[in-house]
Design a protein around this nucleic acid. Structure first.
Lengths: 191, 191, 191, 191
DNA sequence: TATGAATGAGAGTTCATTCAT
DNA sequence: AATGAATGAACTCTCATTCAT
């Protein structure tokens, strides 16, 4: 005796499971229906098309993340507490919604070997940063007790998001981008 | 009279253009062949399947990125120069290879409206961080001259990468993850 | 508070509108229900299936035509009056039931261009007859004051129906078909 | 080693067989392919869609009819010969292309019983005309040796085509339609 | 080696029909 | 009697892949 809304949520939940396992194109509407315990045609009573269903999941998940993040901030008093809460929420959400993350990275069209290889490349990239940090430490450019791994994540994460923001989200002429600014903030943390 | 290797590169280049415009499943082997100026069957002389071709592109691009990043580090003396070079390379690569980024985010199955909406959500998430930074500034928890926007990218980027690393790449029990560590590095930079 | 029979007629009327606009397969039971202002399932209380509903419409319409034609004959005294009444009824029925005619010719699966083209072919066929009549007139084989257009309809209509009757309705060996007979009657009218 | 054009014709021929047996919507592309001895996808190398294939058949057939009719006219000297040739061609074409006629009348969605019933209605309509002719003969309004059946086809065919032309093909205000004209031509032939 | 005509598995989607309410 | 949510059979069309030339 589920309400229309409950049924819709059921389908979304089932979709997340199937999409995350097989990717967008690998997921068959029939599988989703079976996973939700309903008939194939019924999905179309609730969602116009496969694309729309997928978009609904994205909306659903992203909003869930945003709200959770916001809430985790309000739970702290000092900025330190808040930041720690954010960090915790981030890992917890990721941990509990690995399926959703799988959806965002359409990882499923890739072979196992390929995933391994991509992972290795990723590590190689991070290692470059770590080596840089290590060298700077030896030269006394940054403080001695700095955890090199954490510094790496800090640098790589900040630079990546900064670039994406400036190039993709809020495009600016390359010449005008203030790289010194972000580097300054980072260095301050590392020194 | 291109060598076998040159032809292979031609196909990869053509693939990148087509994959980036239409996504993995939207890209037709025929379009890629036409874009490369060859016959449909010829692609299969060089690549086993569509999947393999796609993977080859990934490898090709990621490697290009890694090498470029490494090179940009060697060009600096101090860590400040190196970091600035990294930042510059990041934005330049992104700017010049937007097609590749399009491939990684399977953006093409999403409707225009959906993309706008996701973008808005993304901004909303970042705004949360900015507000937190702002409040902390007012309370004197962090220094007054800090650029709030840059701080935001620094925090969000670092936390994201940290979580992904700890959960997806190098999984650890949730309880053991050292959130305090990354927060400490960040705060040091913000104070 | 319509009687069962009235409701059935309502459905038939609605069906005619929908079938005529979309053709048999293009017509959806749901559209018919909506057009009749009732629920989808209710149609099945009155008609076994879509096919049966369609057949009911045919019966309904053809009978209406037959009865009307018969009545129009009884209204005349001389054969001339009767024929004129028939002619009038024919055009009036056609004019008032264009929807039904649309149903018989499954015109809806054809593109606009195609319909135009078919219409042109039809005219080309008739033009052949008209030219033949015209030539015969010049040679003095038929009377001078004969309206060539009317003669064309007379010939083409009579020959078509004659063929259909002899081949499709009441099949006879080709050799035995008395073409001379129908030609004789026609010529008598044209001379 | 069939040329592209020959293959296209093969498909058309196969389509005619399948469409005529099952009607437009009843015909499955797979059946057509099998009938043509090719793969399902191959049809789409030659025809954009099912609709287009259907339209091609119509064009093909109607043109064949028109050309044949024209030719049969040129084979005669007097109008009598020409008319007889037309009459013969009509029946022969119908006889040899019954499949095509089946396509035009979407007879296949009708049950056997229904077809029988429609046939009966058709006869009933014609019988009305015949009775009218018979009565007129008794009253001396038309000549005694007139074959009543032939007269019936002549009248019914001529009136039908006349109405269709005036209402559907070349629409005119009802009041302006010259029924007396066609009746005059007909009567002249019957007297 | 290069090609592209031919293929057919496979998927999304529709909609007539059913049946619990 | 009336309904409309649920169903799943069945359809068209796509496109990666093959292979004869």
């Amino acid at each position: 005796m589920a309400s229309r809304e409950e049924k819709q949520t059921d389908i979304i939940k089932a979709s997340i499971r199937v999409f995350s396992e097989h990717g967008f194109d690998g997921a068959k509407m029939e599988s989703i229906a079976k996973e939700a315990g309903i008939g194939k045609g019924t999905i179309y009573e609730y969602f116009e098309s496969k694309e729309r269903l997928y978009e609904e999941i994205l909306k659903f998940s992203v909003e869930e993340y945003r709200l959770g993040l916001k809430e985790s901030m309000t739970r702290g008093e000092t900025i330190e507490e808040k930041l720690r809460n954010c960090a915790c929420f981030n890992t917890e959400f990721l941990n509990g919604h690995m399926d959703i993350v799988q959806i965002f990275m359409q990882v499923n069209i890739l072979s196992k070997e390929m995933r391994v290889q991509l992972f290795a490349e990723h590590l190689a990239i991070l290692k470059n940063y770590t080596e840089m940090v290590h060298a700077a430490k030896l030269k006394g450019e940054i403080r001695e007790d700095l955890d090199e791994e954490l510094a790496t994540y800090c640098i790589a994460g900040a630079l990546d998001l900064f670039s994406k923001q400036r190039v993709l989200m809020d495009p600016q002429p390359l010449a005008k981008i203030d790289h010194q600014g972000i580097v300054g903030v980072l260095l301050k943390g590392l020194k």
